[in-house]
Design a protein around this nucleic acid. Sequence first.
DNA 1: CTCTTCGCTCAACAGGCGTTGACTCAACGA
DNA 2: TCGTTGAGTCAACGCCTGTTGAGCGAAGAG
Lengths: 186, 186
Amino acid sequence: MTEPALPRAERRRRTEQRILDAARELFAERGFERTTIRAVAAVAEVDPALVMQYFGNKRRLFAEAVRVTGPADSAGSPEEAVEQLLGTLGLKMRLPPASLAMLRSMLTHPEAAATAREALSRQVEQVSASLPGEDAPLRAALMTTILLGVTVGHQLLELDELREASHDDLVAALRPALRALAETDT
Amino acid sequence: MTEPALPRAERRRRTEQRILDAARELFAERGFERTTIRAVAAVAEVDPALVMQYFGNKRRLFAEAVRVTGPADSAGSPEEAVEQLLGTLGLKMRLPPASLAMLRSMLTHPEAAATAREALSRQVEQVSASLPGEDAPLRAALMTTILLGVTVGHQLLELDELREASHDDLVAALRPALRALAETDT
DNA sequence: CTCTTCGCTCAACAGGCGTTGACTCAACGA
DNA sequence: TCGTTGAGTCAACGCCTGTTGAGCGAAGAG
């Protein structure tokens, strides 16, 4: 009808992408358990059986949907580590759907929990390396979980006090807390 | 057999308590969706139908299981607010099962999310009242979500770096971060 | 002792879920 | 042009879930 001619391979790629986008949206919104294959298929305007054909099962669909590119660069100074962490607070206020999907399910879906632990551990290790002091791992872990908490409160629980603040104000208010952990002066 | 004679009312109260304990345990461990009435009944050594008879439906059972006593006293000085928040980090390292159950489900079960938002809002308001500065609500919200994040990382995700630290070291390391938010000097 | 109350179980239902295999039909290669 | 491939659909399966109503048997009331 509206799509007159499209090569087979391209058509397949687009459909797969549509399913993946739908899955990310629903996983981010409702979490793993409350998201049904049928709902994903409906949003993607596709038959549920096709989702299975492309991704095998629901767990693999989720794993594929939450796969995200690593954070890349490592930090040198403690100040840089702080700024790097603050930067993860959603570029332009909003995290990628894949990350939101993983965060949403990390407390209830075992595989999401494992993925989250892995990602957080990597970040802790990275931050820890650029921190002075003997208890650097502990302080790095605190810095990481602090950002986890703020992100959860802001993006998932949508607490009013955080939503009302501008992104810059939020970052500015949070910075001293992270700096206090980045420097060793206790 | 082993329980020769027990008044009817007392027997009923104990059974209800056993169901409630089982529910809290499973909700805390697996969250709302992955916890089945049948599993709760099995742990409580009771027929699934009895759970329904006592609590009506699964949502009410959850609501009853996560009902928790309020935090009570309010703080005066910023320092007291910080110490009060640090005190919520699990008396003797472990939060009550009811709180764990609510935390576990707050990202995926809408009613748990509402309860969590309410509890957090109360805490934010309380902390905010004892904080100086114009952006006290924002800073109070950050302090609250910081504790949320650390609690989630420690109790639910069970991050190694946090588990390995002693309770006192953890509190001591976290204190400067909260103090930085409690005082207005930026 | 008799009738009532009620804590508790049994068996079943309806609905939704993930998942499957057979099928259709348009795009493709020779 | 004609067989082949493969994207996509259809209808169904078995399972597990929350939930229900009828019934049993012991504790309580008179």
